[in-house]
Design a binder for these strands. Sequence first.
DNA 1: GATAGCCATTGACATATATCAATAATATCT
DNA 2: AGATATTATTGATATATGTCAATGGCTATC
Lengths: 244, 244
Amino acid sequence: MKNFQQGVSFYRQKMSKFSHSLNCIECNCKSLIFNKLNERELETINQNRYEVSFKAGEVMFKQGTPSPHFLCLTSGLAKLYIEGYGKNLIIGLVKPVEYILGPGVYVDNRHHYSAAAVEESTACMVDAGTYKQLIRENPDFAEEFIMRVSNQAIFNFDQFISLTQKQMHGRIADALFYLSDSIYCSNPFTMTISRQDLADISGMSKESAIRILKEFKDENILSVDGSTVHILDPKLLKKISETG
Amino acid sequence: MKNFQQGVSFYRQKMSKFSHSLNCIECNCKSLIFNKLNERELETINQNRYEVSFKAGEVMFKQGTPSPHFLCLTSGLAKLYIEGYGKNLIIGLVKPVEYILGPGVYVDNRHHYSAAAVEESTACMVDAGTYKQLIRENPDFAEEFIMRVSNQAIFNFDQFISLTQKQMHGRIADALFYLSDSIYCSNPFTMTISRQDLADISGMSKESAIRILKEFKDENILSVDGSTVHILDPKLLKKISETG
DNA sequence: GATAGCCATTGACATATATCAATAATATCT
DNA sequence: AGATATTATTGATATATGTCAATGGCTATC
């Protein structure tokens, strides 16, 4: 909660510096969802957004708070997490340029998960009302939106199965593939997330995550040096993922 | 939302009195999402649907198969489940009159979970293309659709937390409240689902589910007689749900 | 009414996983 | 550079949970 307050005051300080420094029409880091919008519509978005920057660790928005904006990450890396009973569950990492399309906007105007910057990040915050209006007016944009929300749901189902039906080794394997294939997009990759975050992705304790990382290292499936991980034997790791 | 709940439970009691209608316009068991459609649009739906009936236990559609329809349950009870590695995970029960809005329709035209009839059931299958076209044409209908999909996502998040962060007792408590409050809508309720299904909702083995049911019975939190369950001490059960 | 077959129940046991505690390694700040 | 906080690692231990096997009850079928 303290972090959130800090985050808010921080972005208020920086806001004027970033606000409307670019515009959406010429923005070269705009989300692909905007391909469905024409120039007039982009200009509408442009007039109803502002940019914010976050330091690593800062909370972007907090589960339970009002959700008057959609947030688009323009640089850095963010984690989305549900705050449960004592523990957190990370339901996804978000990298540029991607929208965070929380389901609360169409239901109760509340965030149903929290978001925090993992690395130093910048984001565009677009007024949800403006966004909703464009969804009403432009069917292509609406379909694109629904497609993204659907993709998110499908991703969630996969995580569901991983977390509820696999044992720890399989879950860590899944997390490593997710990081390598979908987030850092390289094979020797340097994790900017902490061990605790890795554990929160895999639904286990930090200690268990570390132990399994070490086991994989001892079996030459991985090389692990601090935060740098190299998947040496992807085939075997895949097998571990599949056998649970 | 309240109205929706009331409408559904009212319908459940009176279900036997309903006879299936010949067209969507006069159908008195149509989904409330159709309130957003005018007569002409309803007629379009009417011409692109067909009714099916399922015996208890029959599979309605199978994960991985093409998904050319949206399915609306008009009587009975259905379970939605992800087929994992050996086990199934039930991600929700569906009762009349509710649509099953699978996310695959907008992504890869595949079902991402399976559905099966728990009780003898009937359903309307509406052509997905027709549905999508109406979403393009009618913004109110589109918003209603997005709202339902969002609600589903929020429900999934809750189950996510329950399954990954609570121990078995808390998970069974959650499942029992779900059944009593949202599915059977009464307190002494008769489960038409099996013990295995209860276990698949709670993400545990059948034996564990049975054992915990028995513990709750021994502690006078529940009375359990075959498939009839009475929550005697909801306050204590709630506490068990919250403390995990 | 007997038989088969499925579902529910119970107990004993193995093990996956969390928790606690101690230490090592990094990062952060002055 | 030194001090302090934060994060990572390791080991020992407790326990939550799954698996296996045996039994009982119910239902359906002929």
